[in-house]
Design a protein around this nucleic acid. Structure first.
Lengths: 108, 108
DNA sequence: CACCTACGTAAGTGACTGCCTACACTATCT
DNA sequence: AGATAGTGTAGGCAGTCACTTACGTAGGTG
């Protein structure tokens, strides 16, 4: 989870995840999408993503093909979903409180 | 979105968000939950969370009361949900591919 | 007014991060 | 075997981050 968040906080790494979420792509073709950054740098980003469990690596001859590993997102997703659920719970409580206020007004 | 992810990557900041997701808490009482870290450090964490839109601040006399601001999570949540949806789509495609393979076997 | 309480802010420091260039590795082809 | 293509790794550097101590500030209280 910590590793996933650290991996995802880098904008280029999020972009990489979006690139290979549809299908595989080689390290080289991924690097080609980032002209403002050197190829070794992209290679390092790929390693971070792979170590975090967000990328699957497959070797084909001299090339390495990457694709997004969706299972890696599970925990992080749950963290955000947790607060999303809270939001609904808070709204519910607020609505009930409001209802009680109205009831009190009526009874007065 | 970038600010939200940067805020959330710090474990103590995630803990703070969990602390004040139920109700308000003062800066001091929040700091008391982190004995291994100085109070000014917690104060800085609170600022980061507030600037990212994840915390609501209310002043009461000399105290400051904080609570989680759920709307702040919307964008980040959508990012993770995006890949969660992809996961389902990929499973669907895989199932259909498998089905076609079986059909081909039958026709052979 | 003087003092205390509950905070935030400033400035400095060690550790980490993303980036670069140079180099090493591995599979394929001639 | 030697050469080439496609990538990862090593080492170094500038910028950023979390942390600390010292100080500033605003609202209550005697």
């Amino acid at each position: 989870m910590q590793a996933v968040l650290e991996a995802v906080v880098e904008p280029r790494r999020r972009e990489i995840l979006r690139l290979v979420r549809v299908g595989e792509a080689s390290a080289g073709s991924i690097a080609a999408h980032f002209p403002d950054v050197s190829r070794p740098t992209v290679s390092q980003h790929l390693r971070v993503l792979r170590d975090a469990g967000l990328l699957h690596e497959r070797r084909e001859g001299t090339r390495r093909l990457y694709r997004t590993r969706f299972e890696g997102f599970t925990e992080a997703r749950a963290f955000f979903e947790e607060f999303w659920d809270d939001r609904l719970a808070v709204l519910k409580v607020a609505a009930e409180t409001e209802q009680r206020r109205k009831d009190a007004d009526r009874d007065r």
